Computed example of a mutant assay.
Amino acid sequence: MGNDDLTVDVETTAANVVLITVGGSLDDWSDSGGLTKALAGAARGEGIRTVVDLSGVTFADSTALHVLLEGQRKLAAAGSTLVLAGPLSTSVSRLFEVTGLRETFTFADSVAEAHTC
């Protein structure tokens, strides 16, 4: 597996928070299905909050935005909250800024902070 291959790991913490850890490149070339499934599963579960740890994402494009927006919609409909955790790489942070979507999501500087915001 190369450095840019997408990885998605899911765990539920003792505090009933679903933690989705994403690594690699989240773009049109990667298979974003793992993240899509993880977010949909979180929306069907009973977690009070879903945290997506993007600190390991090296690159993201509109594919990432689409998956995260759809996940946020499903989680909100289920009464859950989505928090994106960093620190974010410069390119990922810039993606949210240039698209005007920074205010659409809740961000935390770390996974630990995301559990409390």
Score class of each variant (00 low, 15 high):
10 V>G: 05
112 A>N: 03
32 S>W: 08
107 F>N: 10
102 R>P: 06
89 S>Y: 13
19 L>W: 14
30 S>A: 11
86 G>I: 01
107 F>G: 04
36 T>V: 09
68 L>W: 02
109 D>K: 08
112 A>W: 01
82 L>F: 08
66 H>N: 15
34 G>C: 13
38 A>T: 12
49 R>G: 03
58 T>K: 14
12 T>E: 04
103 E>Y: 14
59 F>K: 10
70 E>R: 09
108 A>N: 09
4 D>K: 13
102 R>C: 04
80 S>V: 00
90 T>L: 13
22 V>L: 11
50 T>R: 00
82 L>N: 06
106 T>H: 05
22 V>G: 12
78 A>V: 00
71 G>E: 06
15 A>Y: 10
65 L>C: 10
3 N>H: 15
48 I>M: 10
16 N>K: 00
57 V>A: 12
91 S>Y: 05
20 I>Y: 10
104 T>W: 07
88 L>K: 08
34 G>M: 08
39 L>F: 01
102 R>L: 09
102 R>T: 11
26 L>T: 07
117 C>Q: 09
105 F>G: 04
3 N>C: 11
111 V>E: 06
32 S>G: 12
54 L>W: 06
80 S>A: 12
89 S>P: 08
32 S>Q: 12
37 K>Y: 10
95 L>A: 00
58 T>I: 10
90 T>G: 14
